[in-house]
Design a protein around this nucleic acid. Structure first.
Length: 424
RNA sequence: CGGGGUGUAGCGCAGUUGGCUAGCGCGCCUGCUUUGGGAGCAGGAGGUCCUCGGUUCGAAUCCGAGCACCCCGACCA
């Protein structure tokens, strides 16, 4: 992809509406633009990252035996009346009325819809377990949207639902999902913790929250460096640094570390909360109707994009991990009026694309400084610098966004060197 | 929903005891020069000063109402 032909509107100045690094950098790097409070457009660069995150999640979900589908956004009121949540969800649910005055909610979560589907289609214990998931835009009329896509009113979520015949089956699938989540967040390059949590409105007995460590996180927890035990911080701990209590780990008695965190994933053991309310049953071996034992598993996909930046950036811009970077390689020909520089860059561009490597070529007739600044802002992991200076000795330069030092490589070895880095 | 703040060019802002043609930096367009960390000079385009109403000879500026956005809090699968 050539910068000259792409839609990546970068900004030098920090928009006054953005307070935290990820929000500022997503705006400055041309990843997102605001349409209304808590409602954002993903521009091509941001969308690429979003898609990469989705793909990581998709691979791990499929590997865990889940199947992807797509549920509707419009939910008829009657369905939500079955569980009593039409009233319980209240103003947080955005509502619309059709031409026949029929009421719908814009889906803030999909337990009702998925349970309705499964109760219609699954009749026998022989068809269980079933694990289904989707990527979808969720709507929640948050009291206070903030921090860009971190807490939006419209956002992308991966939600997954498991249906089992008994608690034992659920336990197996639940553990599979927890492991899949650990794989996902590891692949995304996160430092994260898993903490047992309240299950809140969704209900059920057991739940785990997946928390990315970041100073700007809206929540906080204590963790033990020795045994990895975690517990959520109480509100009074969050608010006053000074008055924060010192907690000892209940398992190994060492003092625990306080950290702010961003919730990126949440798993719930739902039991029969929804299946019972909605009369969603299957027949067991004895021909008796039994309610499905359910689990649900959510990941904030668009939030992950912001959380990644929150955890990995510097004064100059974003630092993407290879796994979700919008492009893996950025080519920086510093003087496109030099024919040899230009030709070398074009050749690398073609060769990398032929190898299936995502690459962004800064083919603009801009000064070196401008290109370097934009490259650092965009945060593409591998920077390849092609300059008149290096051409003289038949070399190019490779710099990792995450490191300061550059390595010089003989021109003929460039491609293989980059390929080795991409695969690392 | 309570408290605080802000709305002036694409972005960041100044101008607000009422006054003349509404300004600065960045960005954008044209030309020349420049070319390893957001270049220089010259020329140029771009504004319902958030909206509506009121006061006044005259309103970006004063008054009233509304809207939007941001921050703190409560809330949040």
């Amino acid at each position: 992809m050539r910068i000259s032909e792409s839609f990546i509107p970068t900004m030098k100045e920090i928009p006054s509406e953005a307070q935290i690094p990820s929000h500022q950098l997503m705006l400055r790097a041309g990843m997102i633009r605001k349409l209304a409070s808590g409602v954002y457009t993903f521009l091509p660069l941001g969308y690429r990252v979003l898609k990469n995150v989705e793909q990581v999640i998709r691979e791990e979900m499929n590997a865990a035996g889940a199947q992807e589908l797509l549920l509707p956004t419009l939910h008829p009121r009657e369905l939500w009346e079955e569980t009593g949540r039409w009233g319980l969800y209240g103003d947080e649910m955005l509502k619309v009325t059709d031409r026949n005055k029929r009421e719908f909610g814009l889906g803030p979560t999909h337990e009702e819809v998925i349970t309705d589907l499964v109760r219609r289609e699954v009749r026998s214990y022989r068809q269980l377990p079933v694990i289904l998931y989707q990527f979808q835009t969720k709507f929640r009329d948050e009291i206070r949207p903030r921090f860009g896509v971190m807490r939006g009113r419209e956002f992308i979520m991966k939600d997954c639902y498991s249906f089992d015949r008994d608690e034992k089956g659920l336990e197996i699938n639940y553990q599979k999902m927890v492991q899949a989540y650990k794989n996902i967040f590891t692949r995304c390059g996160f430092k994260f913790k898993v903490v047992q949590a309240d299950s809140g409105n969704i209900g059920g007995s057991l739940s785990h929250e997946f928390m990315v460590l970041a100073d700007t996180g809206e929540e906080a927890l204590y963790y033990c460096e020795a045994c990895d035990h975690c517990q959520k911080a109480k509100e009074e701990d969050d608010n006053s640094q000074a008055g924060r209590e010192k907690l000892s780990c209940p398992k190994c008695n060492k003092e625990m570390t306080y950290t702010r965190v961003i919730e990126v994933g949440h798993t719930f053991n739902l039991g029969t909360k929804y299946s019972a309310a909605m009369k969603a049953t299957f027949l067991d071996e004895k021909g008796e109707a039994q309610p499905f034992i359910m689990g649900c598993y959510g990941i904030g996909v668009s939030r992950i994009v912001a959380a990644s930046i929150e955890q990995s950036h510097d004064a100059n811009g974003i630092i993407w991990p290879l796994s979700i970077a919008p492009f893996k390689v950025m080519l920086l020909p510093l003087d496109v009026s030099n024919e040899q520089v230009k030709v070398t860059a074009e050749k690398l561009h073609q060769d990398l694309q032929a190898q299936g490597v995502t690459v962004l070529l800064d083919d603009r007739d801009e000064r070196a400084g401008v290109k370097f600044k934009d490259a650092d802002l965009l945060g593409i992991p591998i920077k390849v610098i092609i300059s008149t200076r290096n051409m003289a000795e038949n070399k190019i330069e490779i710099k990792l966004r995450s490191k300061n030092d550059a390595i010089k490589v003989d021109l003929p070895e460039t491609l293989s060197k980059i390929m080795a880095m991409v695969k690392a």
